[in-house]
Design a protein around this nucleic acid. Structure first.
Length: 215
DNA sequence: AAGAGGATGAACT
DNA sequence: GTTCATCCTCTTG
């Protein structure tokens, strides 16, 4: 597996990169612990004309300044005052296009992820949501703005193990959009690998039940 | 200066 | 299905 170079993220077509990110491998080296996981679910956010994007209108603020870095950096922000959510910055410098990582499929370091999540039994609940996977990988606000194209970085991304073909990619509306976002809410900019059990799931589904796991 | 609300998750009834 | 934890950011005045 090769570390993806900064050029991988340079296109201004954030939707295209969001699809290409599926199947790529997310590595973390935090707390002296290594993990790797397949990216199975992403969402695209486009600064220029997307009301759902924090930097709508390409407007910079203290929070969003790392979104304007050149492609291949991390944008990490605090959601609901509790969860650090991890995004991949794309496009040339000055363009606030980012991709939210919504779910991953663990490959290595699974025991670390389970410990950090305090979940005793292996199941998708450890990483099937944007706040869950950052907790599992110990990705924090301090990782905002770091590069993802260097294996020295605490978080980096490498090529896929198996290429995901277009027919195996689901396209649908993004999660958590409200009326305030109006038309942008319906943009089908959420992508996930079809039939992959590690993707996030609607809030009212009990995963323990779904996977027949005893609590 | 103040207040509302959020790209969520967990624990309830 | 509902509620709350928790705090930052943005909007409004």
């Amino acid at each position: 597996m090769e570390v993806l170079p900064a050029s991988f993220y340079l296109s201004d077509d954030v939707v295209d990169i969001a699809k290409k990110l599926l199947g790529k491998v997310l590595h973390t080296n935090t707390d002296n612990k290594l993990t790797s996981s397949i990216i199975v679910e992403t969402e695209a956010y486009r600064g220029l004309d997307d009301k759902a994007c924090h930097a709508f209108g390409n407007k910079m603020s203290p929070r969003t300044k790392s979104m304007f870095l050149p492609g291949g950096h991390a944008y990490v922000y605090l959601c609901y005052g509790i969860h650090a959510l991890m995004n991949v910055v794309t496009g040339p410098e000055g363009q606030a296009n980012v991709i939210l990582i919504r779910a991953i499929q663990p490959l290595h370091g699974i025991e670390f992820m389970m410990n950090r999540r305090n979940v005793p039994i292996l199941s998708p609940v450890i990483t099937n949501g944007p706040g869950k996977l950052t907790a599992a990988c110990n990705i924090q606000m301090s990782n905002d703005g770091i590069p993802l194209y260097s294996s020295d970085s605490p978080v980096f991304i490498t090529s896929e193990i198996e290429l995901i073909s277009a027919k195996n990619i689901y396209e649908g509306p993004r999660v958590g959009m409200t009326k305030r976002i109006d038309s942008c809410a319906h943009r089908p900019w959420r992508f996930y690998i079809k039939n992959n059990v590690w993707v996030s799931y609607p809030r009212n589904v009990d995963y323990y039940k779904r996977w027949n796991i005893e609590k």
